[in-house]
Amino acid sequence: MSGLDRLPLDALHRDLGARMAEFAGTEMPMQYAGVIAEHEQARSRAALFDVSHMGQVVLHAPAEVAAAALERLVPQDVAGLKPGRQRYGFFTNPDGGIEDDLMIANYGDTLRLVVNAARKAADLALLRAGLPEGVAAELLADRALLALQGPEAEAALAPLAPGAAAMRFMDVAEFEVAGVPAWVSRSGYTGEDGYEISLPADRAEDVARALLDRPEVAPAGLGARDTLRLEAGLCLYGQDIDSGTTPVEAGLGWAIQKARRAGGARAGGFPGAARILNEMDEGAARARVGLRPEGRAPMRAGVPLYAQQEGGAPLGAVTSGGFGPTVGAPVAMGYVPAGLARQGQRLFGEVRGRRLPVTVSDLPFVSASYKT
């Protein structure tokens, strides 16, 4: 895998016996003890993920100035985001599609973003082209990002960072973790309670080892991260959402706050606003849905969906799918015409030339357990 980026914790992952593979141009740990064991670790105790491949961006301007500027590029209410809080957002394009999804955090003096690994360069270019003079975007190359996820995440982190226990879902704060200055958010990508910890890359191993020394914690790789996020009904950019998918089609209209909707204090003013706001009022032609294949065979990304077992053209497709360890059965997500996006609707997915039954299901498959 020559030519790929390596994580700051690359040596630690190899010491722990990780199976490494390429993801978004970086050698990443896929699994250690096995995907199912690591999935169950996150559901029952606490799992530590290295997500340092993600892009961490700082907007250099006072937070209120940066917020007004960023609202030109995203449909979120950034100006209303209070210090010490974070929210989910997405960059949109003139056609209403999603260029990337991201986290936006207000640390009081500045805004900090976390963007997807495969979109780092494109997002930085988008920011630099779209932000006004006086607001500079910097992609940080000297920071690591750890995700501690699971019902015992607080118990594991609090002895190393007492301020962590007082945080609630989507809070952000700066404090030391095991003696290392860090930016901490109470958030994650698993549906479980947990934290994401940004810290200097050259101190990441100290913090990771301190967390792994806790009896509640074990390492986990991208395999378990994917099964967890699928059960939680969370989108993966490039599969479930992309530049041709609108937020309304993806079921992400909840992430567009009232201030940016039609009639709101700062309605519109972002790329694709006309289409997105119209779809919020009138509905979209298609919708992302949960899917429950019958039997034990998973339906993975790309499986075409049909209204009937024989004949007819495909009406949609699976975008993410696999076996859900907590559900104990295959689960999937995909897009179907809005008229068929109702719980209990029976469809058929074509797997290796055979059309197998699949039922539309509500999302998520496993309810979130955030600390609110």
Rank of each mutant, 00 (worst) to 15 (best):
D95C: 12
D50K: 14
A147Y: 07
A274T: 15
Q31R: 15
A158M: 09
F169T: 04
R288Y: 05
T227E: 12
L211D: 10
V115H: 00
G269N: 04
V172L: 01
V65M: 08
A173D: 03
A267C: 03
A262N: 02
A158K: 09
S187I: 02
L222P: 01
A204E: 09
G163Q: 07
L70W: 09
V35Y: 03
H39V: 01
G194R: 01
R225C: 06
E138A: 12
A317P: 05
L131Y: 14
F169D: 04
L252E: 05
G253K: 12
F175L: 03
A218H: 04
L277Q: 11
P304L: 02
G97A: 07
S185A: 04
R260D: 03
A122F: 12
L234A: 09
K82F: 11
E310Q: 03
A341F: 08
L356R: 13
R214D: 08
G233S: 11
P298Q: 03
R87H: 12
A47K: 06
Q239I: 10
L305W: 07
P271V: 01
Q308C: 11
L291R: 07
V331F: 04
A33H: 09
M1A: 15
D226V: 09
C235N: 15
G191I: 14
A42G: 07
G324Y: 05
K82E: 15
A46W: 10
L131I: 12
A232I: 09
A136L: 01
D240K: 13
A137V: 15
V366Q: 07
E174S: 00
R19H: 07
R209P: 06
F323Q: 00
M280L: 15
L124F: 10
A178Y: 13
P8H: 05
L81V: 15
T326M: 12
R300T: 11
A11G: 15
G84R: 00
S52F: 02
R225M: 14
Q239G: 00
L228S: 04
A210R: 09
A144R: 04
A144Y: 06
V327W: 10
A341R: 05
R43E: 10
S52A: 07
G283L: 10
P151Q: 11
A166W: 00
R14I: 11
M54V: 01
H13F: 13
A158Q: 12
Q149P: 02
G80L: 07
S243R: 14
R354D: 06
V58P: 00
V74R: 05
D142V: 02
G134A: 02
G251S: 10
Q308P: 00
